[in-house]
């Protein structure tokens, strides 16, 4: 049995590490999974306790960020190539699922030069990474992120601690450059370091000290009210599939493993369930 919904591991375009993504093959949509993780939390879920207190968020991600990873890699050969030769990965073979997403041709226009005429016989388009186009595309990403940061009242000021004591509208006093820096930082979480640096120069931002670890920001000023998403979520609602959040159920055994010597044990972080309901 297969459903249209599956979690797979793909390469994270920022870290290069394997990271969980969710495909909805029915709606042809890709989601990233962020996990809320803070020390000292547990869930009570009905009549059970769940260690860890994790909360997962599945939110739609622009697949172009993931494709960009492969396009840049393929660009080392310096030639136009069909997408199915670009998106290949020995480590994460599920990357081929990306090819099933809709409107890829339209997406790829933002970051590639393409050739399709020459080899029309096999109806393949050939693509080549374009740094210039990519930077322009990323600039647009930064701009729309800036707009959202403002509507969502995110405190982008570098002077977090100094402003934490002001209650009302310090957001309005934040400088435009702070917003752009912040948005650049957020977008940089989806692209490799090199590209992030190029984008930084292109946007004429100061040296990215923002990418240094841990600004002194214990107090976070958040918007008072959850802001309605501008995006129309109803389109995810079809077939009862909504943007999905979930609790990670871990096995008691898994918890125990944290204290146990892991060598020789298979798959420490495989799965959640307290009890495996194996159905046949």
């Amino acid at each position: 049995m297969k459903s249209g919904l599956m979690f797979v591991k793909l390469v994270n375009p920022c870290s290069g590490e394997g990271t969980i993504y969710l495909f909805n093959m029915c709606l042809q949509q890709l989601f990233e999974i962020k996990v809320f993780k803070e020390k000292h939390h547990s869930w009570f879920i009905n009549q059970s306790v769940q260690s860890g207190g994790l909360l997962h968020f599945a939110t739609p991600i622009d697949p172009l960020f993931l494709l960009l990873h492969y396009l840049r890699k393929a660009d080392k050969e310096g030639k136009f190539q069909p997408l199915d030769q670009v998106v290949v990965d020995d480590m994460f073979p599920n990357c081929i699922l990306l090819l099933k997403l809709p409107e890829l041709e339209k997406l790829l226009q933002h970051v590639t030069e393409e050739k399709g005429i020459v080899r029309e016989i096999d109806k393949k388009k050939y693509y080549k990474y374009s740094k210039e186009k990519t930077i322009k595309w990323l600039e647009k990403k930064v701009n729309q992120t800036v707009a959202a940061l403002k509507t969502n009242n995110v405190n982008v000021s570098a002077r977090v601690q100094a402003t934490a004591f002001f209650s009302g509208d310090q957001a309005s006093s934040d400088k435009e450059e702070d917003y752009i820096c912040y948005a650049h930082g957020l977008v940089s979480d989806y692209i490799p370091r090199e590209l992030s640096d190029d984008l930084c120069k292109y946007l004429k931002l100061p040296e990215p000290s923002a990418s240094l670890p841990n600004p002194p920001s214990k107090k976070v000023k958040l918007s008072d009210e959850p802001v309605e998403a501008k995006e129309d979520y109803t389109k995810f609602n079809r077939k009862d599939w909504k943007t999905e959040k979930k609790n990670n159920k871990m096995t008691a055994a898994q918890k125990a493993l944290a204290k146990v010597d892991k060598s020789g044990m298979k798959s420490i972080d495989s799965f959640f369930a307290a009890k495996n309901k194996k159905k046949t």
Binding site: F7, K9, N12, C14, S15, G16, E17, G18, T19, I20, E32, I33, K34, V35, F36, K37, E38, H56, F57, V154, Y182, G185, L186, S188, D189, R193, A210, S211, P213, N214, P215, S217, V220, N248, D269, S270, F271, F272
Partner: peptide, 21 residues
């Protein structure tokens, strides 16, 4: 050691990319 820490937006909210389920 992580190559890069997540952006401060995520750090301040206890969010990180899921690498396991």
């Amino acid at each position: 050691v992580r190559p890069r820490l997540p952006h401060r937006y995520f750090q301040e909210r206890g969010l990180e990319s899921a690498t396991t389920l």
